[in-house]
Simulated scan of single mutants.
Amino acid sequence: MKTLIKFSSLLFIVILNQACKENHSETLPYDDIVQKSAKQYAKMHQTIYPEINNKKFIPRTINDKGQPTLVGIYDWTSGFYAGSLWYLNFLTADSKWEKPALEYTKKLDSIQYWGGNHDVGFIIECSYGNALKKTVSKAFDSVIVQTAKSLATRFHPKAGIIQSWNASKKWNCPVIIDNMMNLELLFHATKISGDSTYYDIAVSHADKTLENHFRPDNSSYHVLNYDVETGDILNRNTHQGLADDSAWARGQAWGLYGFTVCYRETKKPNYLKQAIKIADYIKNHPNLPNDKIPYWDYNASATNETPRDASAAAITASALYELSSFMGVEGEKYENFADKIMLSLSSPNYFADKATNANFLLKHSVGSIPHGVEIDVPLNYADYYFLEALYRHKNINQ
């Protein structure tokens, strides 16, 4: 009998191990990819640092000649480079990254007073927000709170939403799914200041987005045009997707990430439920390629010529790791999905060879195909969310 029990136990372990191997057929080469990332960015820093006192000094992408395209602080992507330097500091535990991370972060100081765009959340939370993970600083706290005040000026109480872009001939009050990413800054500001105003604005915006932005299949529209007095939806459109009724890949990732953050900060079950629905939409989409790196739009033609979007994949992976941490055993399938995405992004198909790609990490991202810009190029936010995903992978496995 004892022999039978031992055999049964051994058989169970063998079956369990086999199941684990099937779920994790490959292991993410964490140490190797961190080392490669650090070497790439060390070269990038060496190349672009001489420009730091110029108006344009932050690497965003590359030009037609393969040279880095630099932008100034009011570009919506200006916080990602500083954020990537912070994540390299966290990932490598090498203090050499802290000085440049601080320097590029402090260069964004004046953004805290800018109310001209909703993207201040991207800019400041990715830079100063990450700096505060490393440094206790009342000055940095003040930047977060002041930026939240500036962002709050774009809130329309009657409609319950934060306006994304300024009014134009096309839209009265456009609100884009990307705006979910700026709510983290508002939650952070309430934690620092104790002023619930910012928290309440974030929750209001998230509730209205949940109510109005999603289709029955849990894909999201890109742009909603609001009447700020009544809260009525005047139009549902796209700006960077294939069509008004299509599922722009990066937009789906923004929604997944944003509602995961909202659940983290509020513990409201409806936000977790929505994040899971979006994750399942992405995970089970029939047009998702086998390597789990989406085409630029989930409704785009599935051909070898159709551009992929590594930035959407990196954002998705980072969000999935955090989502999985809220779900216990049920979260394992989302962690496994994130692992598969990261394995692809870490492969030579997407991760650049040493000293190529203008020293950006990832190849094959898409900015905006309808506008004919940044197609099949590296993008600084693809790198940022890739490094963040590595950081979250590390924390989960610890």
Rank of each mutant, 00 (worst) to 15 (best):
M1R: 11
F12I: 14
F12Y: 15
Q18P: 00
Q18S: 13
A19K: 08
E22K: 13
N23T: 05
T27P: 07
L28A: 08
D32L: 10
I33F: 01
K36C: 05
S37G: 01
A38V: 03
Q40P: 09
Y41L: 13
P50S: 02
K55C: 01
G72F: 06
F80G: 08
S84P: 04
W86L: 10
N89E: 06
F90K: 15
D94V: 00
S95W: 01
A101K: 11
L102A: 13
E103S: 11
L108E: 11
S110N: 05
Q112I: 07
Q112V: 05
W114P: 02
G115E: 00
G116L: 12
F122E: 01
I123C: 03
Y128W: 12
G129Y: 04
A131Q: 08
T135K: 14
S137W: 06
A139P: 06
V145K: 00
V145M: 00
A152H: 12
T153A: 03
P157S: 09
K169G: 00
K170V: 09
P174K: 00
I176P: 08
I177W: 08
D178W: 01
L183G: 10
F187H: 14
T190L: 03
I192G: 05
S196F: 12
T197Y: 15
Y199L: 15
K208C: 09
E211S: 15
H213K: 02
N218H: 14
Y221I: 13
V223D: 06
D227P: 10
V228I: 12
E229H: 02
G241C: 12
D244Q: 06
D245I: 05
W248T: 03
A249H: 03
Q252M: 13
G255S: 10
F259K: 09
C262N: 11
E265F: 15
L272N: 03
L272D: 05
I276V: 14
I276D: 09
I278N: 01
P289N: 11
N290L: 10
Y295K: 02
D297L: 04
D297V: 07
Y298T: 00
R308S: 09
D309T: 14
S311Q: 13
I315W: 07
I315C: 04
T316W: 07
S318R: 12
G328P: 10
G328K: 10
V329P: 01
E335P: 04
N336W: 08
K340R: 15
K340L: 14
L343V: 03
N349E: 05
Y350G: 10
F351I: 13
A352S: 12
A355K: 15
L362Y: 03
S368T: 05
I369E: 11
P370C: 07
D376S: 07
P378T: 04
Y384F: 15
F386Y: 13
R392C: 03
K394F: 01
